[in-house]
Design a protein around this nucleic acid. Structure first.
Lengths: 193, 193
DNA sequence: TGCCACGACTTGACACTATCAAGTATTCCG
DNA sequence: CGGAATACTTGATAGTGTCAAGTCGTGGCA
């Protein structure tokens, strides 16, 4: 099954970003790796930032799928902990996407309703989960603050693990799962108390 | 008082990063803005990544100062909440530094012991604070997990506010301070319970 | 069948970038 | 006085994003 050039370009870009970050990404390099002229990718993506925007869109889509899938047996039974774990897992196994998704300086959301919508959908799954955790008695405002808290802790942990000095600071993170559950549980105690 | 070219270059770079992110930063543009030849900055910083490394070093230094300064009257009396607030405040008022400090793909810590040390020192102030919060009965492991949790929530909140879609998602963050305190308090409830 | 429009790509050019290499001018020190 | 170090400059090279103008095949329609 022949992959289109468009797909190959995105795939190569995501791989590169996962390895070396988005900054040094070169359209021309990717084109030459794919064995096409330097303008071929340009035909599929208006400009350099467009490919980031598209990667973000796909990323949010994958993210939503992961976050809203039914619980598996090997996952924590607590919804909040599970969300946290999935968030971090997603980030670490999809570095190439994750590193782009939250970079408003890279991708121009305002020019891509599709990416905007994908991001909204992702956040909605989070809001929905927090609503379930807090129960029907919680106010909208309360849900928003709690969702922000949950999002923050998962996002912070993920970014610190990916790009930050966390590993270097707390010693070898030999068992990431335990760390994530530990952190999430502290958080959850705060939320549900 | 004549600022050295080195200082002017860093200042201009930090300002640019705060406005537009680190990616498009151009050595040559900065040089020409400063009215010097395109190689002048190159003389002070071995290469492009060296300026990021230096910005990170200064950033961590400022960060440590902010985090370890004595409590002011207008700050929250709870140490954990105060640390959280300061963290986010620092990030938002020092975007140019913050955007670089945690980007291991941009600055090569491993080649700069000074930056490495500055980062270590920053984390130590955090560990110290968590130690105080938990009291002397807490184990080292417990302190590390709690410190990671606190760091994660503050870091996540800060990055989401700076680069992320948070503002767009939870509506206008009209009173950031209230949001940060709200989030921090949820976290703290978890930690101290 | 003939034609032509359009998508997918190529080729060429331009301005811009980081970086290497080799200058120059000043200052400070033995 | 000499020379080494410091703080630059000028010049050149390779690589970059992007504009503009091709080419080439395939599908649809007369």
């Amino acid at each position: 099954m022949a992959q289109t050039l468009r797909d190959r370009v995105i795939k190569a870009a995501v791989r590169y970003i996962a390895d070396s970050g988005p900054d040094g990404l070169s359209f021309r390099q990717i084109a030459s790796d794919a064995g096409v002229s330097h303008q071929a990718p340009y035909h599929h993506f208006g400009d350099r930032s467009a490919i980031f925007t598209e990667i973000a869109r796909e990323g949010f889509q994958k993210f939503t799928e992961v976050m809203s899938s039914p619980a598996r047996r090997d996952e924590d039974s607590n919804l909040a902990v599970r969300m946290c774990e999935r968030y971090v897992d997603f980030a670490l196994t999809n570095k190439g996407y994750f590193r782009v998704m939250f970079r408003s300086d890279l991708c121009q959301m305002d020019e891509s309703p599709e990416t905007q919508r994908a991001a909204d959908e992702a956040f909605d799954t989070l809001l929905f989960a927090v609503g379930e955790i807090l129960g029907s008695s919680a106010s909208i405002d309360e849900i928003r603050v709690q969702a922000t808290a949950m999002w923050s802790v998962a996002h912070g942990l993920a970014t610190l693990l990916i790009d930050g000095p966390l590993e270097h600071k707390i010693g070898k993170v030999s068992d990431r799962r335990t760390l994530v559950r530990g952190v999430a549980n502290r958080m959850i105690d705060g939320i549900t108390s």
